[in-house]
């Protein structure tokens, strides 16, 4: 049975729950998990219950990397570190935005920690507000589409590149739609000494507005359209990419999600979709996905 126990309060079909489960499947019992505030943290630990079958700590929204630094330092000081992995599982808001400074500090100091970003592309826990990870034109509650708005005006920040620039020995992207690949990468990240990073794309049925049964399918579509390229970087260099056989047009990914629905109905719709297609094309070319 999974070390992330059932009974938690995640929405039916929750992508974060998949991510949490796969991380623990990859790591086993010899791990300490640090979670910043966010959906996964809240729905797994309604006092006096906890879904975690491993030691777990939540402190605040923006400090998980620093808390993990302290856990690692204490384990070293007390002679308890041995092979225990210290792993942060944080949302995109905690990672891209409010917690970035603490992450930068921890990666610079070179703690032996693994940071897993569970990216559902918005602040879900507080009701689907945009974050630095929200993709271009997605409609969220703080970047809604409207008469004069086509949704989120900014591009998604390139977080793996930011981490790689810190000199991290291992950075990878993964998707809950490809569980074996994700589990392999999480295992590898934990095994590599030093601060490592796995960025997991985790569709959220509630926030992205699709049926709960489609969580995994939507995750796969992001990869098949090159909206979410899967790759590994070692010491700053891309060393492995997952090739796409017959790359699908981005419409196939966009049309199944309510957050992009306006792109298909508003005036000048083709312009919007074209711009999104350009992102996928860039990914395909840049990472050599085809």
């Amino acid at each position: 049975m999974s070390l992330l126990k059932p009974g938690h309060r995640g929405c039916a079909g929750c992508g974060d729950a998949f991510a949490g489960k796969f991380v623990l499947d990859a790591l086993g019992e010899d791990v300490v998990i640090v979670s910043p505030t966010g959906c996964l943290e809240v729905f797994t630990t309604p006092y006096p219950e906890s879904a975690w079958g491993v030691p777990w700590i939540h402190s605040l929204f923006e400090n998980a990397a620093a808390v993990a630094s302290g856990v690692e330092a204490a384990m070293n000081a007390l002679g308890k570190k041995n092979n225990t992995k210290i792993v942060i599982i944080g949302g995109d808001g905690a990672t891209f935005d409010i917690g970035l400074q603490a992450i930068s500090g921890a990666f610079e100091r070179g703690h032996d920690i693994t940071y897993i970003c569970v990216d559902n592309e918005a602040y879900m826990n507080t009701g689907i507000q945009r974050s630095g990870a929200t993709p271009l034109y997605a409609s969220t509650t703080t970047s809604p589409h409207g008469k004069v708005s086509i949704g989120n005006p900014q591009h998604k920040k390139n977080m793996p590149a930011i981490i790689a620039a810190h000199g991290s020995p291992y950075v990878a992207t993964a998707s809950i739609g490809y569980a074996p690949d994700m589990i392999k990468k999480v295992k590898k990240a934990a095994q590599v000494k030093g601060p490592t990073y796995v960025h997991v794309h985790a569709p959220c049925c509630t926030g992205w507005k699709f049926d709960s049964s489609k969580t995994i399918e939507v995750g796969r579509l992001a990869v098949e359209t090159a909206m979410w390229p899967l790759y590994e970087m070692e010491n700053g260099e891309v060393t492995n990419v997952r090739k796409i056989k017959n790359r699908k047009p981005v419409e196939e990914y966009l049309k199944v999600q309510g957050r992009f629905k306006h792109l298909f109905t508003m005036d000048g719709k083709n312009e919007g979709i074209k711009k999104v297609q350009a992102i996928a094309d860039w990914n395909a070319k840049h990472f050599g996905l085809e």
Partner: peptide, 19 residues
């Protein structure tokens, strides 16, 4: 009131009722 909670204790909450 302890500040810690027991591992896997969400199992007390039978989410089958949500279905």
């Amino acid at each position: 009131i302890k500040t810690v909670t027991k591992p896997g204790s969400t199992r007390a909450n039978k989410t089958g009722a949500w279905r």
